[in-house]
Design a protein around this nucleic acid. Structure first.
Length: 231
DNA sequence: GCGACAG
DNA sequence: ATCTTGTCGC
């Protein structure tokens, strides 16, 4: 765990300080060609809100059998507002809190949001991956940054997500389910784009889900937990 | 100034 | 993310 970045993330108070943290995060990104056959445990994270109370749910799966191994719920007031480009400063505190209460070791995290498909390459998946020093994949339901051509309306059709400034490929747009909006996949940390795409395709089970199953389940549970929260 | 804008 | 009814399509 990179406590240096975590502490700076927790104490950043304005956009200027947040951007400086993101520049530090960017320098720590590592693209790795991981071996998917060695992946045993994956987790999905998602949050829902009731006013400024955040409900974070982390669900851990056995990657091979897709059995749920563990789940953690964290309910807490969030202190940072939602500002496009700075989602990590709002949600990472609750996510790290949830991870600290986990008893099993997780090999990879699927995060609801962008990874390097971000103007400073520091989307929430990347930010979290740098703090945890673990592989993370960014999987967002809509676009934050970049240019792309809509993929064909066919199962798992993909197109490149390109940075309009540098022309780098920063992610992939994938039609994980026919006749639905595509999703935006990008590297979080300690993985490369090819393996990220492969994992997301596996976790959407040939068009059964638009988003990865771990994310789908975490989303469902966080919405259920939200009903229990009193304002 | 104008438009774009994860959850 | 949340609010919020009916409705279109597989």
């Amino acid at each position: 765990m990179n406590f240096e970045i975590l502490n700076k993330t927790l104490s950043a108070k304005n956009i200027y300080e947040c951007k400086n943290v993101q520049y530090l995060v960017r320098e720590l990104i590592e693209f790795r060609d991981i071996d998917i056959s060695l992946l045993n445990v994956v987790a999905g994270v998602d949050l829902s809100y009731k006013g400024d109370i955040g409900i974070c749910v982390l669900v851990v799966f056995d990657f091979k059998t897709m059995d749920i191994l563990e789940q953690v719920v964290t309910v807490s007031k969030v202190s940072f507002p939602y500002i496009p480009g700075f989602l990590a400063f709002r949600e990472v505190p609750l996510i790290v809190d949830s991870i600290n209460r986990l008893s099993v070791n997780v090999d990879l995290f699927i995060v609801d949001g962008q990874g390097v498909a971000h103007p400073r390459r520091a989307g929430i998946a990347t930010h979290l991956g740098v703090i945890l020093e673990k592989p993370t994949v960014g999987c967002a339901k809509s676009l934050l940054y970049g240019c792309y051509i809509d993929p064909l309306n066919e199962l798992n059709a993909t197109t490149d997500l390109v940075d309009p400034v540098t022309n780098e490929v920063i992610g992939k747009v994938i039609r994980t389910k026919v006749s639905t909006k595509p999703i935006f996949v990008s590297v979080g940390n300690y993985i490369n784009l090819e393996k990220s795409v492969e994992i997301v395709k596996r976790l959407t089970f040939n068009g059964k889900y638009r988003i990865p199953l771990p994310t789908f389940i975490a989303d469902k549970l966080s919405k259920e937990e939200r009903k229990k929260v009193i304002l």
